[in-house]
Design a protein around this nucleic acid. Sequence first.
DNA 1: TACTCATGTTACCGAACGGTACCGCCTGCC
DNA 2: GGCAGGCGGTACCGTTCGGTAACATGAGTA
Lengths: 203, 203
Amino acid sequence: MDARADERTVHPAMDDRSLPPRARILIAAQELFVRHGFHGVGVETIAEAAGTNKMTLYRHFESKDLLIAECLRGIAGENDSVWSLIDSACPNDPRGQIMTWLRSIGEHTPDGNHVGCALVNAAIQITDPDHPGRKVVEESKRAHRNKLVSLCQAAGYSDPELLADQLFLIVEGARVSYRSAGPDGIGANLLAMAENIMAAHEP
Amino acid sequence: MDARADERTVHPAMDDRSLPPRARILIAAQELFVRHGFHGVGVETIAEAAGTNKMTLYRHFESKDLLIAECLRGIAGENDSVWSLIDSACPNDPRGQIMTWLRSIGEHTPDGNHVGCALVNAAIQITDPDHPGRKVVEESKRAHRNKLVSLCQAAGYSDPELLADQLFLIVEGARVSYRSAGPDGIGANLLAMAENIMAAHEP
DNA sequence: TACTCATGTTACCGAACGGTACCGCCTGCC
DNA sequence: GGCAGGCGGTACCGTTCGGTAACATGAGTA
């Protein structure tokens, strides 16, 4: 029914114990969850991929659901740091920051596979409205949208909220289409679409 | 871990045997899969919701995965018939057809919950690249995109392919954001975003 | 009546999974 | 040395799930 259990090794240098078990578990869990989904990978697989075992995993995380939530917090934090990176790469250049962000969306992962947005995928996989991971996703998306609005305002575009939402939705649509329509599908020329929309909001 | 098992009754008139078991199973499976995800509902639950049992289910469907694929084919067919409906509602009015389609996206389901696009959700839940349901989703999305392109061409917009892809991605992004950011989030004023984009392509 | 065929019913199997108990080891620290 | 705590290893439990076997039932039909 589910993904093949073959080749679930994660980071090769994971087995050396340079990182404490909790960090190794989080890294392994993030990678495996993103690749195979929450239901597609069990806690024992995660523990083995982290070079430890199930008991140690449960010493650091109360349950699988809370491990999922912690992974989502980690992913949200990585997204935040991407914005910090962009900010320091194009200081005082909001338009350049938006363009840098847009260009980064189309980049392939090291293994050549698009997986879309891990937070969106999580929100779809989680059907329980009370799951601890859900509010992590919603909060991250809200912050992401606010960041985009402030950038569009700073860049002096007309109707910055409308533009920000347009860019946000196009990017969300493109990333989800990598999964639903294939990587060579509709999201291929995302940049041209975004530039066309931005041109309509040029002051 | 997963959705609550409470209240999985589907269509109330499902128990009367007006429909043959295979049709009842498909209806129940579609509804339950959309609401709780593929992993969140078992075949026995589906059979009971359809007013039958597991053995009859397996007499009509080789496996759960093939049942999933059949459900996706049914959903894709429903999407096609929506386009036929729109076509007959606005004959020879491609622009009106696009607008009608856009308006239909924001409508709520009878229970007031947005579930996004069932095919996209399926593509994200399915991690196996060889799953029989995957090609159903990809084919449906490709046809959907082609339909939009031909409508934009017929409406005389400049750069119809770019416009079609922009509209497609915005809608995909909005529908997925109903799940990731909540129904009152970014996709709320989808219509204004689309009209703004279309205005930029006015001939 | 006798036959066929789709369906209902029950029981079961093997595997996977989330989670726990228990033991032993090793390291660091007083 | 002695102690404590973090960690590895293993065995186990209860449950759920996909899928199957075997049999009963009931309607339609020749």
